[in-house]
């Protein structure tokens, strides 16, 4: 564990609390893509199957895994059941098969071992890299977002961004160890946030509303 990784994970936790806070206080999931949230459930469930195989890493690791699975399912419950009327599927139109197909194929080709768990692990890594696309696509379509939603995205982006210095740090402190699948997918994932962060820094953090140029 290093500081980059710890702050990254805390930022990931924060993003989930921000999202829950947004939904609970506004009693609405307006502006949130349920497709992205469903993809996160799939990401966590397929990646954390090792919870049940006895490959114990640490208490921290297991508690976080359980939290991510539980909270992502709870968010789906809020969006699909409790605040269902505030969920507008007509603007959440990214086609999931464009994400699920290619990531499944990639996982079958590029994995560390052709076993059930390793293929699902690789799939979850590729899937997480692009899971934010329906949300960003929705933002692009509506051209604006509530400030709290942008804080949610910023926290997620910080989490991803900080994993990169974490890997660089680990490379030098752990004798040249790298995880090429996680690193390549992680860099792609972080790159997807670049446009968002440009608007976040130049508008939201200056006290303006998040609005994309027409």
């Amino acid at each position: 564990m290093n500081l980059f990784r710890l702050v990254a994970d805390l930022s990931h936790l924060a993003s989930i609390f921000i999202l829950l806070h947004k939904i609970q206080t506004t009693r609405s999931c307006r502006g949130i893509s349920i497709k992205t949230q469903l993809l996160y459930v799939l990401v966590f469930v397929t990646r954390y199957l090792d919870l049940f195989t006895g490959d114990f890493v640490s208490i921290y690791n297991s508690v976080m895994k359980l939290f991510f699975i539980g909270s992502s399912c709870y968010i789906i419950y809020l969006m699909r059941i409790k605040y269902k009327p505030t969920n507008d599927p007509s603007i959440d139109t990214f086609r999931l098969e464009y994400i699920l197909g290619p990531t499944a194929v990639l996982a079958l080709i590029f994995n560390y071992k052709f076993t059930f768990l390793e293929v699902l692990w690789a799939f979850s890594i590729y899937l997480e890299a692009v899971a934010i696309l329906p949300q960003l696509f929705m933002l692009q379509r509506t051209g604006e977002a509530e400030t709290i939603t942008t804080h949610y995205l910023a926290a997620l982006g910080i989490y991803r961004g900080l994993y990169i210095p974490n890997w660089i740090y680990r490379y030098f402190t752990e004798g040249g160890a790298i995880d090429p699948i996680a690193v390549v997918a992680g860099i792609v994932q972080t790159a997807l946030y670049v446009d968002f962060f440009y608007v976040y820094f130049t508008k939201v953090l200056q006290g303006q509303k998040f609005e994309l140029p027409a």
């Binding site: 090792d50 490959d55 690791n61 991510f68 040249g176 160890a177 790298i178 995880d179 996680a182």
Partner: peptide, 10 residues
């Protein structure tokens, strides 16, 4: 030498 790959990240 590259270390054995392990999934210790979240």
């Amino acid at each position: 030498k590259q270390k054995e790959h392990e999934h210790d990240e979240l």
